[in-house]
Computed example of a mutant assay.
Amino acid sequence: MAGTRQGCVFCEVVAGERAAHLVIDAPDVVAFLDVRPLFKGHTLLVPRVHYETLTDLPGEFLGPFFDHAQRLAAAMESVLEAAGSFVAMNNRVSQSVPHLHVHVVPRNRKDGLRGFFWPRQKYESDGEAADYAARLAAGLT
């Protein structure tokens, strides 16, 4: 799924065809302010090359990509004087634009962000939890 995708809003930003407030303009990534931010400074980090999800991103690019995310998270605190940050991505489900992107959002205590997370669930037993862990671990090899 690599390359540039016609009709992709984020590919248009990367190509300079769509206006955006750029935060990072690097050879491998672009970061820009979200047009509908959770809080002012909410930034989207995207690879220049079109990859739809995290699983499509080549392994050798994971480190460099997340180095940029780490720097953005630090800037939320140092530049915007946020108490911390929220760093997240969706893969397919709830992914509003099918181009890999990481949300880096400044956070402060009692900032009013509620309902962003789904209700938590419990495993029926330790055995069920162990089964999920074993299945996932087996899928990684």
Results as ranks from 00 to 15, higher is better:
23 V>W: 06
23 V>F: 05
23 V>T: 15
23 V>L: 06
23 V>R: 13
25 D>A: 05
25 D>N: 12
25 D>C: 02
25 D>Y: 00
26 A>I: 01
27 P>I: 03
29 V>D: 13
29 V>W: 06
29 V>A: 14
30 V>S: 00
30 V>E: 02
30 V>P: 00
31 A>N: 07
31 A>K: 07
31 A>G: 11
32 F>V: 07
32 F>Q: 10
33 L>N: 10
33 L>K: 07
33 L>W: 08
34 D>K: 05
34 D>Q: 07
35 V>Q: 08
36 R>T: 14
36 R>Y: 12
37 P>E: 07
38 L>E: 11
38 L>R: 08
39 F>K: 11
39 F>D: 06
39 F>R: 07
39 F>C: 06
39 F>Q: 09
39 F>V: 10
39 F>H: 11
40 K>T: 08
41 G>E: 08
41 G>P: 11
42 H>V: 03
42 H>G: 03
42 H>C: 00
42 H>Q: 04
42 H>E: 01
44 L>A: 14
44 L>R: 13
44 L>M: 14
45 L>R: 09
45 L>G: 11
46 V>I: 09
46 V>N: 03
46 V>R: 01
46 V>Q: 04
46 V>A: 05
47 P>C: 08
48 R>C: 01
48 R>T: 03
48 R>V: 01
49 V>D: 03
49 V>R: 03
50 H>E: 05
50 H>R: 00
50 H>Y: 02
51 Y>D: 08
52 E>H: 04
52 E>G: 03
53 T>R: 12
53 T>Y: 08
54 L>F: 13
54 L>M: 15
55 T>M: 06
55 T>N: 04
56 D>W: 01
57 L>I: 09
57 L>A: 08
58 P>I: 00
58 P>G: 00
59 G>N: 08
59 G>K: 02
61 F>D: 03
61 F>V: 02
62 L>C: 07
62 L>F: 06
62 L>Y: 02
63 G>D: 03
63 G>N: 03
64 P>I: 04
64 P>H: 05
64 P>L: 07
65 F>P: 02
66 F>R: 09
66 F>M: 14
67 D>H: 06
67 D>R: 08
68 H>E: 13
69 A>C: 09
69 A>I: 03
70 Q>E: 08
70 Q>Y: 07
72 L>H: 10
72 L>G: 11
73 A>C: 05
74 A>S: 09
74 A>I: 10
74 A>T: 13
76 M>G: 04
76 M>I: 02
77 E>A: 12
77 E>L: 05
77 E>I: 05
78 S>D: 15
78 S>F: 00
78 S>Q: 15
79 V>N: 01
79 V>P: 00
79 V>H: 01
80 L>G: 08
81 E>L: 09
81 E>T: 06
82 A>K: 11
82 A>T: 12
82 A>L: 09
82 A>C: 13
82 A>I: 09
83 A>M: 14
84 G>R: 14
85 S>C: 15
85 S>V: 11
85 S>R: 09
87 V>R: 12
87 V>I: 11
87 V>K: 12
87 V>Q: 11
88 A>Y: 14
89 M>Q: 15
89 M>S: 15
89 M>C: 15
90 N>G: 11
90 N>H: 15
90 N>A: 13
90 N>K: 11
91 N>L: 14
92 R>H: 13
92 R>D: 14
92 R>M: 10
93 V>I: 09
93 V>K: 06
